[in-house]
Amino acid sequence: MIKLSGFGLGGIFVLSGKKAGSKAAAYLKSYIGENLTKEEIKVCVIAALQAYNQKVIEFNLEENFALIKIDNSIFADGITSKKPVCLPLGGSLAGMLEIFMGGNFEPKEIECKACGAKYCVFELKRKN
C-alpha cells in the first residue's frame, strides 16, 4: 500500500514528525502569542528540543531557510546506519517552523550521528 501511494516510509516518518511539531508549536503559540520574532521562534524550538534532552549546537534561521545542528538526537544516539535516521525529528522541526512562520517547510538531514557525523544537521527550506 505504501509503495503504491508513492509516499514511502520516509515520507510517513516526516509527516508524523510534522504533526507532532505542529502541535507543539501551536501549544507554545497559545501561551506566547502570535507574531513572534525570529529570536523568539528560535527560543521556542530550542526549548521544545531541550525537553527531550536534545542539545541545539547551532541554529541559523532566515525567512525561507533554517540550518539546525543537534546533539543527542533521540533517533541517532547509540546506533549506526548507512542512511540518516532522524526523519521524524526533521519533520518535527519543519512542523514547528510552519506554525511559527507560515508556509510549508521541507526538511533534509544532511549529516547524521548514526552515519558517523559528530552531530545531526538539518536544512529546512520553505517550499514555493
Rank of each mutant, 00 (worst) to 15 (best):
residue 125 K to C: 08
residue 120 C to P: 03
residue 32 I to V: 15
residue 124 L to N: 02
residue 107 P to S: 04
residue 49 L to C: 05
residue 123 E to S: 02
residue 17 G to E: 03
residue 69 K to L: 03
residue 96 M to L: 06
residue 99 I to Y: 09
residue 68 I to M: 04
residue 90 G to L: 07
residue 87 L to S: 07
residue 24 A to P: 00
residue 62 E to T: 05
residue 53 N to F: 15
residue 3 K to V: 14
residue 39 E to K: 13
residue 77 D to R: 07
residue 59 F to A: 05
residue 23 K to N: 07
residue 28 L to P: 00
residue 73 S to E: 00
residue 113 K to S: 09
residue 65 F to K: 08
residue 15 L to Q: 11
residue 74 I to M: 04
residue 125 K to M: 09
residue 83 K to F: 15
residue 18 K to M: 14
residue 82 K to G: 14
residue 13 F to L: 14
residue 45 V to L: 05
residue 10 G to T: 14
residue 26 A to K: 12
residue 117 A to T: 03
residue 97 L to G: 06
residue 74 I to H: 03
residue 27 Y to C: 05
residue 41 I to D: 01
residue 100 F to R: 00
residue 9 L to I: 15
residue 84 P to W: 13
residue 113 K to G: 00
residue 33 G to N: 02
residue 90 G to C: 11
residue 125 K to L: 12
residue 56 V to I: 13
residue 2 I to H: 04
residue 52 Y to D: 11
residue 18 K to D: 01
residue 23 K to A: 12
residue 19 K to F: 15
residue 92 S to K: 08
residue 72 N to S: 08
residue 48 A to R: 01
residue 92 S to Y: 14
residue 72 N to E: 09
residue 55 K to D: 10
residue 21 G to I: 11
residue 18 K to Q: 08
residue 73 S to C: 10
residue 99 I to C: 01
residue 49 L to A: 02
residue 84 P to L: 08
residue 40 E to K: 12
residue 116 G to R: 07
residue 122 F to R: 01
residue 93 L to G: 06
residue 13 F to N: 06
residue 78 G to H: 12
residue 79 I to W: 09
residue 77 D to T: 13
residue 24 A to E: 03
residue 80 T to P: 01
residue 96 M to F: 13
residue 93 L to I: 12
residue 11 G to I: 12
residue 23 K to P: 00
residue 6 G to V: 13
residue 48 A to M: 08
residue 56 V to W: 09
residue 42 K to Y: 06
residue 57 I to Q: 06
residue 2 I to K: 04
residue 84 P to H: 06
residue 125 K to V: 13
residue 91 G to Y: 14
residue 6 G to A: 11
residue 30 S to M: 13
residue 75 F to A: 12
residue 94 A to P: 07
residue 26 A to R: 10
residue 42 K to C: 06
residue 75 F to Y: 15
residue 118 K to L: 14
residue 63 E to K: 05
residue 34 E to M: 02
residue 22 S to W: 10
residue 40 E to W: 13
residue 94 A to E: 04
residue 112 C to D: 06
residue 77 D to P: 00
residue 31 Y to G: 04
residue 87 L to E: 02
residue 53 N to S: 11
residue 26 A to Y: 15
residue 113 K to I: 07
residue 115 C to T: 15
residue 15 L to P: 00
residue 113 K to Q: 08
residue 57 I to V: 15
residue 94 A to L: 06
residue 118 K to Y: 11
residue 117 A to M: 02
residue 3 K to L: 13
residue 2 I to N: 05
residue 111 E to D: 09
residue 44 C to N: 07
residue 102 G to E: 05
residue 128 N to Q: 10
residue 91 G to D: 04
residue 66 A to R: 02
residue 95 G to F: 15
residue 127 K to P: 01
residue 35 N to M: 09
residue 106 E to G: 01
